[in-house]
């Protein structure tokens, strides 16, 4: 196997809140280690407040990494993300890009589609003259299934799916290797969502991209990603190849997420094992296992001691009781 494109080791992002007397630390991402292999479509799931967006931003060096390290290595160059600045940071901006959630908010209404897509090239100074810029814009627009006539128009004239294709073209125009897609299909209608997902997969193939795909929608993740990591309150609780994870989830939280997906079968109502309560505040985290306040299987040990990721058969899980629970209830 090739070296991973992204390797995070004990990565933490902490924010300091409050003033002089009520200083609190918010651990948005806490001690996360993961490898994203070159060319993979890596899914990151969790509820709001789980830290998945912050982790994505940390890997783009859009927030400061508080502790631990993260390394980017595409074979050409290698960057240590925690200490990146100056010309190296500029170089990394070219290699790592973000696709946003809301295609209505992400595009300036005052710029034409051509200018929106060309802006990263101009800002980064990647092209020598206007003719070269135009050529790059046309090339990437065609790959994203936008036609030349679209380039002269303003974003308001486009539907959600078309706007998201414009955002994708803008993210890809600088020729990045690593793309963070943060809930990039969540705001789209179901009939369009599949189209954008297929486009992302196709671009991944054609351009040799590596994706970190952040989503709360497990069925979308199951269909697009080859590897999935599940986050809860800033910690990684489970990570595995997609098939393994969906065939036999090990963490009680992952199981609860699966069973909460509303079934398409009208006669399959109310069989789910529902989670009670909500995700605790990240400023006031529970002791021990972060999930014990909502876990139906929590015991004394879970309240005292935080479980570490255990690996077995390429499938990692952080739970004290997973083996016991797997043998008791066949998946």
């Amino acid at each position: 196997m090739s070296d991973p494109l992204i390797r995070a080791d004990g990565l933490s992002v902490h924010f300091t809140l409050g003033g002089l007397f009520d200083r609190r630390i918010l651990k948005a991402v806490d001690n996360v280690s993961l490898d994203i292999e070159q060319g993979s479509f890596f899914g990151l799931v969790g509820e709001s407040g789980s830290g998945k967006t912050t982790l994505g931003r940390a890997l783009l060096k859009a927030v400061t990494i508080s502790k631990g390290s993260a390394r980017y290595d595409d074979g050409e160059v290698s960057h240590d993300l925690a200490s990146l600045d100056g010309p190296d940071l500029k170089d990394y901006r070219k290699r790592a890009q973000l696709i946003f959630q809301d295609p209505y908010a992400a595009l300036s209404p005052r710029m034409t589609v051509r200018d929106i897509i060309a802006e990263p090239l101009e800002v980064m100074g990647l092209t020598a003259n206007r003719a070269e810029t135009d050529e790059r814009v046309r090339e990437i627009a065609a790959k994203c299934r936008l036609n030349l006539e679209h380039l002269r128009r303003f974003p308001h004239a486009f539907s959600g799916g078309q706007r998201q294709r414009i955002s994708i073209a803008r993210a890809l125009v600088s020729g990045p290797k690593f793309i963070v897609a943060d809930e990039s299909v969540a705001a789209l209608d179901v009939s369009i969502q599949a189209d954008v997902l297929n486009l992302l997969k196709q671009l991944q193939d054609e351009l040799g991209l590596t994706f970190l795909f952040i989503s709360h929608d497990l069925s979308v993740v199951a269909h697009t990603c080859d590897h999935v990591a599940v986050m809860y309150l800033g910690r990684l609780v489970e990570t595995a190849p997609t098939r393994k994870l969906f065939a036999a989830p090990r963490h009680p939280y992952t199981k609860a997420l699966f069973s909460a997906i509303p079934s398409l079968d009208p006669d399959d109502r109310g069989t789910a094992q529902k989670l009670t309560g909500e995700i605790p505040s990240p400023t006031n985290q529970p002791t021990g296992c972060k999930f014990h306040t909502r876990c139906p299987h929590a015991i004394d040990l879970c309240m005292r001691e935080e479980p570490q990721l255990e690996s077995e058969g390429g499938h990692d899980v952080a739970c004290h009781r997973w083996k016991e629970l797997m043998s008791a209830v066949p998946a």
Binding site: E47, H216, A256, L257, A260, P262, K274, L275, E278
Partner: peptide, 13 residues
């Protein structure tokens, strides 16, 4: 979130 969605759906039923 899906977990909260499931709770709200149950409540409405």
């Amino acid at each position: 979130d899906v977990t909260i969605q499931a709770q709200v759906i149950d409540l409405m039923k």
